[in-house]
Amino acid sequence: MQDFFDAFQQAFALIASGDPELIGIVLLSLRVSLTALILACIIGFPIGALLAVSNFPGRRAIILFFNAAMGLPPVVVGLTLYLLFSQAGPLAVLELLYTPTAMIIAQIVLITPIIISLTRGTIAGLLAEHGETLRAMRATRPQMVMTLLREAHPALLTTAVVGLGRAFAEVGAVMIVGGNINHVTRVMTTSIALETSRGELAMALALGIILLIIALFTNAAVYALAPRSRELAHV
């Protein structure tokens, strides 16, 4: 029990002292996950919206594929990318293995299906509401997509937070393709796994606390960003 409290005390001390090692890990985590999120949104919002508003052969299959891909096991994604990027792999020339870029790619693969599927659902609901009105105003398909994406922005913000949460919380894929190399590819989750296994509970706890604070902060930010008059204005 004493160990337990000691660990907490040391954890808070680490955070309070602004331990450079700790800060480095946190910043790398933020960089990797935010970059992955932004790219996943750039890819996922339009694709999700297009899947909602268009009708072409194979559309249903694509929707099912992305729905299924939401549940991709991170370790399998990590392993697949590892095989692609490794010395013997087809993408070895890119020399991406054990780089932050590889971790960003892994997270994009993991969260883009989530962004696409959630966006498609949101936009499909709005299309049922606005579709005829927009068609009556002779909106082209791209205009429809843009209008509905903008109409959906509060829900899309939430979608992005879900994606970010998944990116931050993920361990398996970034561990495999990043290799958890100190000062290079060590992020919060992989460090927590490593430090815990080494018995360095203080460092693990400090990182865990920061991870929690970031999660809470992100959600609070979304809440604050949402229009205050939403209840009144957006019935």
């Binding site: 509401e129 606005h130 009105t133 009556a136 105003m137 209008t147 109409e151």
Partner: peptide
């Protein structure tokens, strides 16, 4: 030239 319609239940953008 072209028609415009006001629906029975108009839908406005947020």
């Amino acid at each position: 030239e072209h028609p415009a319609l006001v629906f029975q239940r108009p839908i406005l953008l947020r």
